[in-house]
Amino acid sequence: MAEISVTDQEVEDWQHQIEDIVGWFDQLQAVDVSGVEPAAIADGKEQGSLRPDVPRAYENRDAIMESVPNKERSYVKVPKIM
């Protein structure tokens, strides 16, 4: 799901590390959270408001295209999908 290639050596090196960390996360299971609302964002009365989703044209298109690793004319080039 993460779309990351990992080597056999990485799997070997990280297996125990990640197991230990996930095991450490498990202490959260012992906490009594009944009736507690989850908090997605930090404190603040006014925060978390969504702005209207209004599209706007970005003036500096050339600079954005400059960063594209593979392109053809003004198009972004990707490997064959279908």
Partner: peptide, 30 residues
């Protein structure tokens, strides 16, 4: 960076999201 992405992907995956992500958000409230 890869270790953290892999752990985060695990914590958000179906079957684990309530046990990890949602619960951590509830602890955040506490």
């Amino acid at each position: 960076v890869k270790r953290r992405i892999l752990m985060g992907t695990h914590a958000l995956s179906a079957g684990f999201i309530d046990a990890y992500y949602k619960r951590a958000q509830q602890v955040r409230t506490l």
